[in-house]
Design a binder for these strands. Sequence first.
DNA 1: TTAAGATGTAACTAAGTAGTTAGTTGCAAA
DNA 2: TTTGCAACTAACTACTTAGTTACATCTTAA
Lengths: 226, 226
Amino acid sequence: MTEPMIEPANNKKKAKAKVVKRAAGNAEQTKKNILSAAMHEFAEYGDSGARIDRIAARANANKSLIFRYFSNKEALYASALKEAYRQIRMGEEELELEQLEPYEAIRKLMRFTMEHYLKSPWFLRLLATENLRRGQTIENMEGIAGLQSPLITQLTKVLKRGEEMGLFRENVNPSNLYIIIASLFYFPISNVYTLPVVFGVDVGSSEWLEQHLRSSERMILAHLKK
Amino acid sequence: MTEPMIEPANNKKKAKAKVVKRAAGNAEQTKKNILSAAMHEFAEYGDSGARIDRIAARANANKSLIFRYFSNKEALYASALKEAYRQIRMGEEELELEQLEPYEAIRKLMRFTMEHYLKSPWFLRLLATENLRRGQTIENMEGIAGLQSPLITQLTKVLKRGEEMGLFRENVNPSNLYIIIASLFYFPISNVYTLPVVFGVDVGSSEWLEQHLRSSERMILAHLKK
DNA sequence: TTAAGATGTAACTAAGTAGTTAGTTGCAAA
DNA sequence: TTTGCAACTAACTACTTAGTTACATCTTAA
């Protein structure tokens, strides 16, 4: 039992029209609270460092509810990881590259990527944790297909249009391009605590980040140019 | 009985001139074994997941020796992190960019960086762990000055020479350039378990990596060009 | 009102886990 | 042989933690 247990409560929808309200509180809301608390906890402390008691406290729920709804710590972690991806992908869908002029679209994608990472440090932390686990969980996760980034679809169209307009060179692989763009922001943002010590550069400051964005834009656009 | 019991039998070696051997083993060697085992353990399981008992077992040492030599788990982690940086920096010093022609030097630096990450995954894992800890340990570490990457010194000279030769544009910041180069390899290598799921790209294969290196070289060199 | 199931809680347990302690062993100098 | 000491060890302690259980309370339907 990895996840679901959808609507365990309202089993009697039998007769009438009645807004079915669950007995003694609201199970769905409790589950959401637990999931949200779990995301925070696993992002903050990693898989081994996360504590069920803290999750319960943060969710205003009792520990045994966690086990009732999510079976065990591992399954809760899996649910939290999946929910994290779901939320991130939802954010990505808001981006509308397709109407923009190709150069502008790439610039917007880059700024969006940077700001996305800055706004969701918990997501980067979960990613780091899952890779430290060697992808143990994501590999066996059902419904991973839905995790595919919607950015790639949009980027594919932008590249095609840019190519047709004679702006971009041919055969640019959208996934590889996006990996390069993501790389440029993932590294400084996820290593914000160690890089200043090692390179003496304050990669967390908005000045550095803005300058890095401008520099990266120039580099990527030149790289795409026909 | 955890494991060892080194030489329980030959208790009377009294006789003559003998190479001075310390009582029942060798403290320095034991310390090294513990440190090496700790690096492995913390890289593998993270800070919370690491287990003192496993470190003791791997080092063929008794648990209480760990506390005698390293005080506590946190201090052991700090020692392991510092040793990890020391080893990585030693490897970096072998790189000799200064005699090479500027373009060639940049190419060599890029390949070296990629291969360095591939050869030392435990270092990337320790970095990820330390950033999950928000740099708690590296910030309070004595002797961090010695951690500064020797690559920056070499790169500075390469850039200066390239500029004088009219090959590179002016005022390229060496640290920022190196951060870009490191980014391009850090992201795919440290996310090798999640990226294939999300982008359907096998970023761990040598084919992908070689192609990524070539593509990155072109991009970086164009970006540096006058 | 009551039955029954859904929802919630505190107390408990079994298995770890970091750190300590009291003592043993091996070596070399006196 | 004796003594001093550093290296080493097994067993233990105090505490934490995932997971369980027995029980209480709430909601709805009959």
